[in-house]
Every structure is written in C-alpha cells, then in structure tokens.
Amino acid sequence: FIDQHRAALIARVTNVEWLLDALYGKVLTDEQYQAVRAEPTNPSKMRKLFSFTPAWNWTCKDLLLQALRESQSYLVEDLER
C-alpha cells in the first residue's frame, strides 16, 4: 500500500507531525526524525520520509500504514477504493 500509493500520500497527507511522532523510536531514528521535521512543507516532509523507506521491511511499512489509518483514515479509505 505504502509503495503503491507513494505519490498520493506525498501530495495528500496533512498531519505529518503526528506520523513522525508515531514512528519515532520504532522506525525512525532521532536523526531521521529531525531531518523530516526540518523540511518546510508537508509534501517535502513526506518525500523525506519516503527517502528512508527503501531500507524498511514490511513491518516498518505496516507501522506507517497503521499510523496513517489512525491519523488520516479518510485518506486511507479513499486510496483503498
């Protein structure tokens, strides 16, 4: 899901800070967390977050999807259609 809908997630996720907090310490290191937060816009934050995903396994991507479902369920539901 995460890889399949990358472009839509970059464009449409609005609550990136919540995602970062949910992933911090589980998937994201402090350095990665700070790097994403330093980006000026939500799309650039999501691009930076996605720059780390090639090194993630399915469990990490599932944690991101779970966080998306909790914070932006309407968006996930729309993309699952």
Rank of each mutant, 00 (worst) to 15 (best):
F52W: 04
L23I: 06
W56C: 00
R12E: 10
R6M: 13
R47S: 11
L63Q: 11
Q72I: 00
M46P: 06
S51Y: 02
T59I: 11
W18I: 14
C60D: 15
K26I: 13
E31N: 09
A67R: 05
T14E: 14
L65G: 05
L75G: 04
D3Y: 03
A55V: 08
K48W: 09
L20T: 13
A38V: 08
Q72T: 04
A67D: 00
P40K: 12
K48C: 04
Q34D: 12
T53K: 00
L79I: 08
I10V: 06
L65T: 09
A35C: 07
W56H: 09
D30L: 13
G25V: 03
N57D: 15
M46Q: 04
A8R: 08
K45H: 00
L68W: 00
E70S: 10
T53G: 04
C60F: 12
K48P: 04
Q66D: 12
K48R: 12
I10G: 03
D21G: 09
Q34A: 14
R69V: 09
T41H: 00
D3T: 01
L68I: 14
N57P: 11
Y33N: 08
A22V: 07
Q66H: 04
H5P: 03
Q66W: 02
V76I: 13
L28E: 02
L79V: 03
D21V: 06
E77F: 12
I10Y: 06
L75P: 04
T53P: 00
F1C: 00
L9A: 01
L68N: 06
F50Q: 01
K45A: 05
D78R: 10
Y24N: 13
S51G: 06
Q66S: 10
E17D: 14
A22E: 12
L19E: 01
T14S: 13
S73H: 12
V13A: 13
L28V: 03
T59A: 15
N15L: 03
L19W: 05
E70F: 08
T14K: 10
K61Y: 15
R47C: 12
L23P: 04
Q66G: 09
P54E: 15
L63C: 08
A22T: 12
P40F: 01
W56V: 04
E39T: 03
S51R: 02
L28T: 01
A22R: 15
K45I: 03
M46D: 00
S71Q: 11
S51V: 03
N42E: 09
V27I: 08
E31V: 08
V76S: 00
I10M: 07
F1L: 02
V27Y: 05
A38D: 11
L49P: 04
R12F: 04
L19T: 01
V13M: 05
A7L: 07
S51E: 14
T59F: 14
A8C: 10
Q72S: 11
L64R: 03
V36H: 02
S51W: 02
R37I: 14
L19M: 03
S44W: 06
M46R: 05
F1T: 05
H5K: 05
Y24P: 05
W18Q: 15
E80A: 10
W56E: 00
D30G: 06
W56T: 03
L19N: 04
T59R: 15
V76A: 04
D30V: 09
I10C: 05
L79F: 04
S73E: 11
D30P: 11
L9E: 03
L28D: 01
F52L: 08
T53H: 08
K48Y: 00
Q66V: 07
R47P: 02
Q32R: 01
L65K: 09
N42V: 05
W58L: 15
L75M: 05
E77C: 05
T41C: 10
A55M: 12
L65E: 12
L49W: 01
N57H: 10
L23S: 01
A38G: 10
P54K: 14
L9W: 02
D21P: 00
E39K: 06
G25R: 08
N15V: 00
F1A: 01
A35Q: 14
P43L: 10
P54Q: 13
W58Y: 15
W56S: 02
N57L: 12
K48Q: 04
H5L: 13
A8M: 09
E31S: 10
E77M: 11
A22M: 12
T14D: 13
N57E: 10
L75W: 01
R37D: 11
R37G: 07
A67G: 04
A38W: 01
M46L: 10
R69C: 09
R6D: 04
E17M: 07
S73W: 10
Y74G: 15
L79Y: 01
L19V: 13
L68A: 03
A22I: 15
G25T: 02
K26R: 12
E80G: 10
L63E: 10
R37T: 12
Q72H: 14
L9M: 06
V76F: 05
G25Y: 06
P40L: 06
K61N: 07
K45S: 10
A35I: 01
A11Q: 03
D3M: 00
Q32G: 04
Y33G: 04
E17S: 06
F50K: 00
S44T: 13
L28C: 01
V13D: 04
N57A: 09
L19G: 02
P40S: 10
K26G: 07
N42Q: 07
T41A: 07
S71Y: 06
A55K: 14
G25P: 15
R37A: 14
D78N: 10
A8H: 09
P43S: 13
Q72N: 15
F1D: 04
S44R: 13
Y33C: 15
C60A: 15
F52M: 08
F52S: 00
K61L: 01
Q34R: 14
V13L: 05
W58E: 15
E70A: 11
K26M: 06
K61W: 14
R69I: 11
D30E: 14
S44I: 08
E70L: 07
H5M: 12
F50L: 15
T53N: 00
E39P: 01
L79P: 01
P43D: 11
A8Y: 11
S44F: 02
D3N: 05
Y24H: 14
L79R: 03
D3V: 02
D21M: 10
L28A: 03
S51P: 03
A38Q: 12
D30S: 11
T59S: 13
V13I: 07
Q34E: 13
P54V: 11
V36D: 03
K26L: 08
Y24G: 07
A38P: 01
I10Q: 04
L64W: 00
R12H: 11
N15K: 13
R37H: 11
Q32C: 04
K26N: 10
A67N: 10
S73C: 11
I10H: 03
Q34H: 14
C60M: 15
R12P: 00
W56R: 06
L23G: 01
E80F: 07
I10S: 00
L68C: 04
W58T: 15
L19Q: 08
L65M: 11
V76M: 09
E39C: 13
R47N: 11
S51I: 01
E77P: 04
Y74P: 13
E77V: 04
R6N: 08
S44P: 01
A67M: 08
Q4L: 09
K45L: 01
A11S: 04
E80I: 11
P54G: 14
K61E: 09
A67V: 07
T53S: 13
R69H: 07
P40Y: 05
S51A: 08
V27W: 03
W56A: 01
L49R: 07
D3R: 06
M46Y: 04
L68Y: 03
S71W: 01
P54C: 11
N42P: 10
A7F: 05
S71N: 15
H5Q: 09
M46S: 01
F50T: 01
M46G: 00
L75A: 04
Q4P: 00
E17V: 00
W56G: 02
L9C: 06
D62Y: 05
A67T: 08
A11R: 13
A35D: 05
A35N: 02
A35W: 00
Y33K: 09
R47M: 12
E31Q: 09
T41G: 07
D21Y: 02
T14I: 06
R37F: 07
N15W: 05
E70I: 07
L64F: 15
I2T: 11
A7E: 15
L63P: 08
A22G: 08
F50P: 05
Q72P: 00
